[in-house]
Design a protein around this nucleic acid. Sequence first.
DNA 1: TATTAAATCTAGTAATTTAGTAGACATATA
DNA 2: TATATGTCTACTAAATTACTAGATTTAATA
Lengths: 153, 153
Amino acid sequence: MLSKKAKYALKALLYLTRQQNAGLVIISDIAEKERIPRKFLEAILVDLKTNGILHSVRGKKGGYSLAKDPAEISVGNIIRMIDGPLAPIPCVSHQYYRKCDECMDEATCEIRIVMKKVRDATAAILDTTFLSDLEALKAILQEESDQPIDFQI
Amino acid sequence: MLSKKAKYALKALLYLTRQQNAGLVIISDIAEKERIPRKFLEAILVDLKTNGILHSVRGKKGGYSLAKDPAEISVGNIIRMIDGPLAPIPCVSHQYYRKCDECMDEATCEIRIVMKKVRDATAAILDTTFLSDLEALKAILQEESDQPIDFQI
DNA sequence: TATTAAATCTAGTAATTTAGTAGACATATA
DNA sequence: TATATGTCTACTAAATTACTAGATTTAATA
């Protein structure tokens, strides 16, 4: 399961992506619009800043903005940053590889093979989906949901 | 991440699959061979029994055996049984669907779309991989690892 | 029938992770 | 100087994970 923290991070980043031309955005604004607990969000944004995803300005008229092009920030990137490995077991993770505790022989572990498939399929999706893709997707979804079904037929 | 509990369940089931013609197998045997804490394994096996995966006999000469054909027990089945949904967020789960807490409109949620892809890819793998497949796979992996590389050329 | 070897049941516990909260502090603008 | 912002430190409560201990039930066998 994706943690709430990671989900909030994605929501906040997508909000900032949509507000890209609006200059700096304040925490309270993001918190309110995306329904994220204010203080919790603060910590998340600091984390994203530390990881070079966000840029911030302190003081009056301060706020947050993206530090990179949304086409360069992948969903996989953010999830790994907040939640750690995408892989369901440590021995199939690329970026966080670790031997499984009870594992006797990695070379003959069947579970490892299935889980590697899962991690590869997951990474293939999340590492090729960028904030910009999701922004475009949102626009399409909104158009679709504006069109009442009756009119589409 | 897959819990240790689910991993132990899979290991135990795969062990029982390999011992299928050996009659009943006792907990201590599984625990020892698969390096699973004995008492923890007990609870897991009871769980699997309750879910109709295992058959057991009490008393002297008792033990456990599979209650079904290994070709009918999928990995997805077991993981759902122990860990719950495969889906990374509740709103894309088929068997455990729930609305996300902060979600304002499911129809326009971009995160939902990516996560649905992940859940579908994961389910496609885990729901079509059965204990029998993994047993066959193990045999192949063992042969390969028995063959020193030098002799294969 | 007593002994033994097995599963099962009840009831915990310690450590870790998750999802936050409170409040003081630093900084920039007006 | 007042005010509106981000930042830092230090908590906390609840849930989850990964177990453990010990009594009990059941069936075979000596």
